[in-house]
Design a protein around this nucleic acid. Structure first.
Lengths: 210, 210
DNA sequence: AAAAAAAATGAATGATCGTTCATTCATTGC
DNA sequence: GCAATGAATGAACGATCATTCATTTTTTTT
C-alpha cells in the first residue's frame, strides 16, 4: 500500500530520492506550516527514516532552500512553457502568461501555502529573499515587455508599462492570499474574473469582462 | 538606557505589561521570523525575564494569538478613524479608505512581515485563519459599499462592485508582498501610483493618474 | 555465491525549546 | 517601619528538535 510516488526498490537513484524528499517537504509545509515542519514530519510524509534527510541534504536548512529552489524552478518552467505554446499575438501571449497563475496546478491552496511560508521568512533569511526576488524579476521582465508592446500596438495612451505590469502581478498575489485565508469565498473562476476586469479596463479593445 | 516604551517602575499595570510583551512579539517576528520567535527572543526584546510570558499569557501560543488580535484591532481602528475624518463624498471616502493601506504606519516592512507570518500559518492553524478572515470581512464590506455607491453615482456601466473591491484589496496585499520581498524596488509612492492607475482606469471621472 | 559497496535505518546525543516554581523584589495597607 | 501581597525572576525540568553513526539491508561486483 505504498504511495505510488514512492519507488518500489529500496534503493532509488540519488536524484529520485532527493525529489521524493522535496515533495514530502512541500506536503508537510502545506499541512503543518513551516514553523512546525520538522525532520520527523518530512520523513514520515516520505515514508522513510529520520536519518535520510541529513544523508541526502546534509541539513534541514539545505532541504528547505532546495525545496524553495524547486518550486521557483517549477513555476518558471510552467510560464515559459505556456509562452512557448501561445500564439504570436501580443494580447494572446499576455493572456497566456497571466493565465498560468490561475491554472489548476498553480492556483492551488497547498502550493500557495508553500509560497507564503517562504515569503513570510524572507525578511530574516536573505537566502530565501534572493531566491524569491529572482523569481519575481524574471516574470516581471517578460510581463512588462508584453504590456509595453500591447500599449504601443494598441495606442493605449499614456499608460506606464512597468506600473501596469506591477499592478497585474500584485493583484494575482493578493488573490492567492484570498484563496489561502478565505478559501470559501475564492476560487479560480472568481479570481480570473477579478483580474480580467482590470485587464478589460486597461485594454478594452483587446480584452472584455466576458 | 532602558527603552522609552518600558515602564520605569518594576511593577507596571497588568495591561501595560501585556501590551509591552505584545509589542516585543511584533518586533521579534519582524526581526527573526515567526519560526524563530521563541520565549527567549520575545522576553529579551522586552528586556524582561523568561517567565514573564507564561505569567501574563499562560502559554506562548496564547501570546501569539493575542498579538494577532492586537494587530487586527489596530488595523481596523486605523481605517475606521480614517473614514470618520474623511469628507462626505463617495470618491473622497473611498480614497481615504484605500490610502490607509499606504500610510507610513501601515505600509511598513516590519508590520507587513508580521501579517505575512500569520497568513502563512492560516492553513494549519484555524484560530489564525478565523482572525484574519474577520479582518478581511469588515474591510471588504465597507470597501464594496463605497465602490458600489460610486459605480451608481458615477454611472460606471456594468461594473460589479464586489469584483472591483476584491481586486483593489488584492492589489494592495500584493504590493505589500513586493515591499517585503523586494524592498529596493518598492516604496509607498510607487505603490500608490500603481493602485491609482487602476482607480483612474475604473473611475476616470473621479480619479486621475496624477 | 561470496565479497564489496552503497543505501537506509533508528536509537542515541546534545542543544534548544516551552514551562514551572521556589525565591527575590517592590509596593501597599496598617 | 513592618508585615502582607503580588509581580518578576531565572535556574531547573521534561519534551522535542536536528544531527550523528554503528548497524542492517539491499544492490553491485567479482
Amino acid at each position: 500500500m505504498a504511495s505510488p510516488a514512492v519507488p518500489a526498490t529500496r534503493t532509488a537513484s540519488k536524484e529520485a530520492r532527493r525529489l521524493q524528499l522535496i515533495q514530502a517537504t512541500i506536503r508537510s509545509i502545506a499541512k503543518h506550516g513551516l514553523s512546525e515542519t520538522t525532520i520527523a514530519t518530512v520523513s514520515r510524509e516520505a515514508r522513510l527514516s529520520q536519518g535520510i534527510i541529513n544523508l541526502h541534504f546534509q541539513s534541514k536548512e539545505r532541504l528547505l532552500v532546495e525545496t524553495l529552489q524547486y518550486v521557483t524552478d517549477e513555476y518558471r518552467d510552467t510560464w515559459e512553457r505556456a509562452l512557448q505554446q501561445a500564439g504570436p499575438g501580443t494580447a494572446e501571449r499576455l493572456e497566456a502568461l497571466l493565465k498560468v497563475d490561475y491554472h489548476k496546478s498553480v492556483f492551488d491552496r497547498d502550493k500557495i501555502a508553500v509560497w507564503f511560508a517562504y515569503w513570510s521568512e524572507t525578511k530574516s533569511r536573505p537566502t530565501y529573499r534572493k531566491l524569491c526576488a529572482e523569481r519575481d524579476r524574471g516574470y516581471d521582465t517578460i510581463l512588462t515587455e508584453l504590456v509595453d508592446t500591447l500599449i504601443r500596438e494598441g495606442a493605449y495612451g499614456p499608460l506606464d508599462a512597468a506600473i501596469v505590469a506591477n499592478g497585474l502581478a500584485a493583484m494575482t498575489e493578493g488573490l492567492w492570499l484570498d484563496l489561502l485565508v478565505n478559501p470559501k469565498d475564492m476560487n479560480r473562476d472568481k479570481a480570473c474574473r477579478i483580474l480580467l476586469t482590470y485587464l478589460a479596463c486597461l485594454f478594452p479593445r483587446h480584452f472584455s469582462a466576458e
